[in-house]
């Protein structure tokens, strides 16, 4: 059991540290003591607004989004048994982006954009699964191929929409496509879903371990492969859809975090999946802290930072594992 609890406890502590750092650091100078005062119910009105209404919700959104994306990525990699799979590989973010951009083109804002993005993600999910299923059997490679082709289709639609949209709507659209946490409200739904996903993973974890050895081997060892694959697909899609809806499509977290953890912690999904939830959250909280402070008051898209942080870390781990 220590094998599981020690890394998870360490990651939880790191997540707490990242949370506190993200809440403490910002373009407005609020000292550590002030943050502590606010968290314990003291502090001035201004400090309370800064911390409780701006930084805490945004940090929670980063935690939830990062966790969701990393867990979804890890699930997709097991489902497709392909290390290059990420939450977006099956064209889900494309569908979400088309939904969001349509809402922006129509000139509606806020909740409608989120709702439309979520609907787009679900349409993309059903489309890929329906097509991959087709009349024949579905295999991971068929699912992957369908997803990649459909994603390319979404990409073309997005480019088309960007080309014909009025100039004044372009910046908003581009920022959505890059992924941005500055619009995110308090992500209660995303946090609840992340917690539920972690709970679900505990009973499914060992079956996923067996599934990772291949579907025939899994079936021979008593795994009901088809229902399990369905469950994984639906759960991963749902997590991604909620993440994309919260913060736009933020790349790289879903690909890199699961692999980093596998290099360090091995391949037991019962450990990897909850670890992904924490590590994904940590990466995005740190990335967002940098994104909003590095050249403050100018704000960078957080997706840029996740890639800039993730690529070297990942390459270093890969290099050292040889």
């Amino acid at each position: 059991m220590g094998r599981y609890w020690l890394p998870l406890m360490l990651l939880a502590l790191a997540a707490l540290a990242a949370f506190l750092l993200s809440v403490t650091v910002g373009s407005a100078s609020v000292g550590v003591a002030d943050v502590w005062a606010v968290l314990t119910g003291e502090g001035t009105q201004l400090q309370r607004t800064l911390i409780l209404e701006l930084r805490v919700p945004r940090t929670l959104a980063a935690l939830a989004t990062g966790g969701l994306l990393a867990v979804a990525g890890a699930l997709m990699q097991v489902l497709l048994r392909n290390p290059l799979a990420d939450p977006y590989v099956l064209g889900l973010s494309g569908g979400a982006a088309v939904g969001a951009l349509l809402a922006m083109l129509a000139g509606v804002g806020g909740l409608m954009v989120s709702g439309s993005a979520f609907a787009g993600a679900m349409v993309a999910t059903l489309l890929v699964f329906g097509l991959a299923h087709g009349t024949g059997s579905w295999t991971p490679s068929r699912l992957l191929l369908t997803g990649v082709v459909v994603a390319a289709g979404w990409g073309a639609v997005i480019t088309l929409m960007l080309a014909i949209s009025p100039a004044e709507r372009l910046p908003g659209m581009l920022y959505w496509l890059m992924g941005d946490l500055s619009y995110a409200g308090t992500p209660s739904l995303a946090l609840v879903l992340l917690a539920l996903a972690c709970l679900l993973v505990v009973p499914l974890g060992r079956s996923l371990n067996v599934l990772a050895r291949g579907p025939l081997q899994a079936a021979a060892l008593g795994v009901a492969v088809r229902p399990l694959e369905w469950t994984v697909y639906v759960v991963a899609s749902l997590l991604t859809a909620v993440a994309v809806t919260t913060a736009g499509s933020i790349g790289f977290v879903g690909l890199v975090v699961p692999h980093m953890l596998r290099l360090v912690l091995g391949n037991d999904q019962r450990l990897i999946l909850p670890a992904c939830a924490l590590a994904g959250g940590i990466l995005l909280m740190l990335a967002d802290t940098l994104a909003r402070t590095i050249i403050a008051p100018e704000q960078l898209p957080v997706g840029v930072i996740t890639a800039l942080l993730g690529v070297p870390t990942f390459l270093l781990l890969l290099y050292r594992s040889r």
Binding site: R206, S207, N209, A212, R213, G214, P215, G266
Partner: peptide, 22 residues
């Protein structure tokens, strides 16, 4: 079928999968 990397002991242990509850 080489799926994800696993150690020899982990591989042998999955033989117990059908006998363990979720």
């Amino acid at each position: 079928q080489d799926g994800f990397p696993a150690t020899v002991l982990e591989t042998a242990l999955i033989g117990r999968h059908p006998f363990l509850s979720s």
